[in-house]
Design a protein around this nucleic acid. Structure first.
Lengths: 178, 178
DNA sequence: CGAAGCATGTAATAAGTTACATGATTTT
DNA sequence: AAAATCATGTAACTTATTACATGCTTCG
């Protein structure tokens, strides 16, 4: 279970409210770790109960108070320990492939339609990732230093999406033949 | 939830016991749909309760009876309907990337070690997939026809693993620099 | 004879999803 | 005035994992 550690990683970088975290998450770790807001709020509660993060109230004029979470010493220890422990390789669950595998029971047109739908989504993701990459590459080299490792994960996304789209072309050709 | 449909797909191809299915699964859909044997047995039970599969006892001399599951008319209908319904794009949960993202809290050596560990696993998977591909390509063209669609999913695996390994090289270089 | 693989599960727990809920503020 | 987005959750349900359990056969 790494959502817990994903949250610790983000809070270690900078404290913030659940919502701040959520936004940050969706623009970074969210690309390779899926989580709904409910799950995140739940984990925040658990992490607080475990003493791995704390929560301070920030008074706001007019608006309700904001809960600002930050990582604790304990949390940092937990995170460091997790980083030292081997993690299981990414487990894949890809319904589209199940569909294609069993696809002889439906028409090629339907398969193609679904494939294209997915391709559009992957293309969109790739575009977003490429845009982030561009903004990273336009930083001064000194500022890049800080994002070196996150940038590697971004590269993973880009190479992965490219490979996906390449495969989709190949698959499309092959399905169309029938 | 596609494990259910993954099982239906396999049983539609050929009836068999839970264990048969499990083995078949691990050599095909298992490459892109993760499931433990417990989960599969549970789903078999549920599918039977829903009337989507049936279970016949096959007497065996000396050995305990074998439960042979097969898909029912109802199951085929359910499967066909699922195939017509759009599925959600593959949701990724990759702990290694979370680790790398937050990796500045641990030593480059530790990161590299973990990266190599994962690379070895991916290489092994790629080898297996490539071997399957070879045996597919050595079939006579007539026999290939039957496996055209499963072959596409195999290709996805191969292209995906290649991309992963390419990325790992890049990441390794970059991490080593520090 | 011991290990590996055959063969099939139950129970407890954890994690994730879906549906539901609320109320504020900011932008169009 | 409506829509979007801010902001935070609870509850019910489904799915998946881990630990435990059993007993048989086949191969070296």
């Amino acid at each position: 279970m790494s959502l817990k550690h994903a949250i610790l990683v983000l809070l270690e970088t900078e404290p913030g409210s659940g919502y701040d975290l959520l936004k940050h998450f969706n623009n970074s770790l969210g690309y390779f770790w899926n989580a709904k807001h409910q799950q995140i709020y739940l984990q925040l509660k658990k992490l607080r109960d475990e003493g791995l993060i704390t929560c301070d109230l920030e008074k706001q004029k007019g608006k309700p108070d904001k809960k600002i979470y930050s990582i604790t010493r304990e949390g940092e220890k937990e995170l460091a320990e997790w980083l030292r422990t081997p993690v299981a390789p990414n487990s894949v669950n890809d319904a589209l492939l199940v569909k294609i595998y069993g696809g002889r029971m439906c028409s090629p047109e339907e398969l193609i339609e679904e494939l294209d739908r997915h391709a559009a989504i992957h293309q969109k993701t790739l575009d977003k990732l490429t845009a982030i990459e561009q903004s990273y590459l336009s930083l001064k080299p000194e500022s890049r230093e800080k994002y070196r490792l996150p940038y590697l994960t971004l590269r993973r996304g880009i190479l992965g999406e490219n490979a996906w789209l390449e495969w989709a072309k190949e698959a499309r050709r092959e399905i169309t033949k029938s």
